[in-house]
C-alpha cells in the first residue's frame, strides 16, 4: 500500500526530507509520492511521516483513498464553521 498526495498540496516541502524511503519528489503542479517506494513508514516510524507534518487537511490520502487528516483535524476549525464563513464571504 502507498500514500498519495492530491491537488490541495501547497508545495511547502515539509514532507519531502522526512520520508524514510525517499518516495516523495517535487513535481508539477504539486509534490508526488512514488507508490513503488512508499512503505507507509512501516518498520521506520509509528506514524506516517508526511501525513504527520502536512499542514493541509485532506492533502494526503491513505491506501484506501481516505484523507489521513480530515477537515477540522489540524486547524481545529469545525467544518460547518468553515462552510458558514465561506458562504458568508461569497455572499458579500
Amino acid at each position: 500500500m502507498a500514500l498519495n498526495i492530491i491537488e490541495t498540496c501547497v508545495n511547502c516541502w515539509a514532507c519531502e526530507p522526512l520520508c524514510p524511503s525517499q518516495a516523495i519528489y517535487e513535481a508539477k503542479p504539486h509534490f508526488m509520492i512514488d507508490n513503488k517506494k512508499c512503505t507507509e513508514c512501516e518498520g521506520d516510524y509509528a506514524d506516517t511521516q508526511c501525513a504527520s507534518i502536512c499542514p493541509i487537511e485532506g492533502a494526503i490520502l491513505n491506501g484506501f483513498g481516505e484523507a489521513i487528516n480530515p477537515p477540522g483535524s489540524l486547524t481545529g476549525i469545525p467544518p460547518h464553521k468553515m462552510m458558514e464563513a465561506m458562504a458568508e464571504i461569497q455572499a458579500r
Binding site: V10, N11, C12, W13, A14, I53, P55, I56, L74, T75, G76
Partner: peptide, 12 residues
C-alpha cells in the same frame, strides 16, 4: 515554505 508547527493566526 515548510513549517513545524501550526498557529491559530496562520493559514498555511
Amino acid at each position: 515554505p515548510a513549517c513545524n508547527i501550526q498557529c491559530h493566526y496562520c493559514n498555511r
